[in-house]
């Protein structure tokens, strides 16, 4: 080994935000280098392919082409939901047990790194990956929608002029096509997809603090994800049957612990060209933040006591 002397570079141990950002950016790099972005090729094929899914058209010629725009949105947002939730759960479920198994966690916690900083960094790294993935998918979907809606609009304008439609009819037709193209409501829908994936990442983090198996964490997380979509209906039916205060308390506890995703499906209307109500978006954001923070705090309580 070289005879280079060791230099005195002792320094402060840094801030919480600094350490969290170091762990988050490292986690993001780790996942990117696992080549997860290859899925974008699959998404591109689905989004471009959805241009050619020519569904049966029951509307008149004035609405021709809008079904293709619906198809693009429906397939793209559906694929975004699937990919983002799978990423969020699998990536989070993978990271913690791997660090423990490889003893990398020992070397990190042997530095002046509070356990909460480690957890928050890991989670933010996964959420950053989901965000970047969704941003890239959203960009591709918006580009395809923009091109396709312009083509449809040109074709319909020609049709309208050849048939001698009046100006109000042309304006109405134009509005209908524009509402099916890329707009702010569609971006809000993508944001809701991001929130849902972030909740699932937080939940997977919580499960992985007491589970030692990636498979167990993933399966339980996916089960809770599906339960989250119908738990509100189940709770409604359960409480309607003359429940007492104890039953109501249990139902409330279930809603508190398991994510309630019934509002998150409201963006289906956006696919059909309707606007996303700002109040609803605010409500969903609040619910998303509540669950994410709740799961992170619960994870911290368990992880702080964990022994390695």
């Amino acid at each position: 080994m070289s005879q280079t002397p060791l230099s005195p570079t002792r320094s402060a141990s840094g801030s919480h935000a600094g350490r969290i950002s170091v762990i988050a950016s490292h986690t993001f790099t780790q996942l990117v280098r696992m080549k997860v972005f290859y899925f974008l090729a699959v998404f591109a094929v689905i989004t471009i392919g959805s241009n050619f899914f020519d569904l049966p058209q029951h509307a008149g010629p004035e609405a021709a082409g809008t079904n293709i725009l619906n198809s693009i949105k429906s397939w793209s947002v559906g694929t975004m939901t699937l990919f983002s939730v799978v990423f969020a759960i699998v990536a989070t479920a993978l990271l913690l047990p791997k660090d423990v198994e490889d003893r990398t966690l020992y070397t990190i916690l042997a530095k002046p790194v509070p356990r909460l900083d480690y957890l928050a960094g890991k989670l933010l790294g996964v959420i950053l990956l989901v965000f970047v993935s969704l941003a890239l998918m959203d960009g591709l979907m918006t580009a395809v929608l923009q091109i396709r809606s312009s083509m449809i609009l040109s074709a319909q304008m020609e049709l309208a002029h050849s048939r001698g439609w009046s100006a109000p009819e042309i304006a109405s037709m134009r509005n209908d096509i524009v509402s099916q193209g890329p707009n702010i409501s569609l971006q809000a829908a993508v944001f809701v997809v991001f929130l849902r994936a972030s909740i699932m990442a937080s939940l997977a983090l919580l499960i992985s603090t007491f589970s030692t198996s990636t498979l167990f964490t993933s399966i339980i997380s996916f089960m809770i994800y599906f339960i989250g979509h119908f738990q509100a209906d189940a709770r409604g039916v359960f409480l309607e049957a003359g429940a007492g205060w104890m039953t109501r308390a249990i139902a409330l506890l279930v809603a508190l612990v398991l994510p309630d995703f019934h509002l998150f499906n409201e963006f289906d209307a956006v696919i059909q060209g309707q606007a996303f109500p700002p109040m609803l978006l605010g409500q969903i954001t609040g619910i998303g933040l509540f669950y994410a923070v709740f799961y992170v705090i619960a994870s911290w309580f368990i992880f702080a006591e964990k022994e390695f």
Binding site: S13, G14, T29, Y106, T107
Partner: peptide, 29 residues
């Protein structure tokens, strides 16, 4: 404190320099 565990496996996707940078940043450097 500096700690070297028995049979450590560090992040395989990082280079030697990136590994040291990562741990240095965790210590506020």
């Amino acid at each position: 404190v500096g700690f070297l565990p028995e049979n450590p496996y560090f992040y395989k996707h990082l280079s030697g320099a990136e590994t040291l940078r990562f741990y240095g940043k965790l210590c506020g450097m």
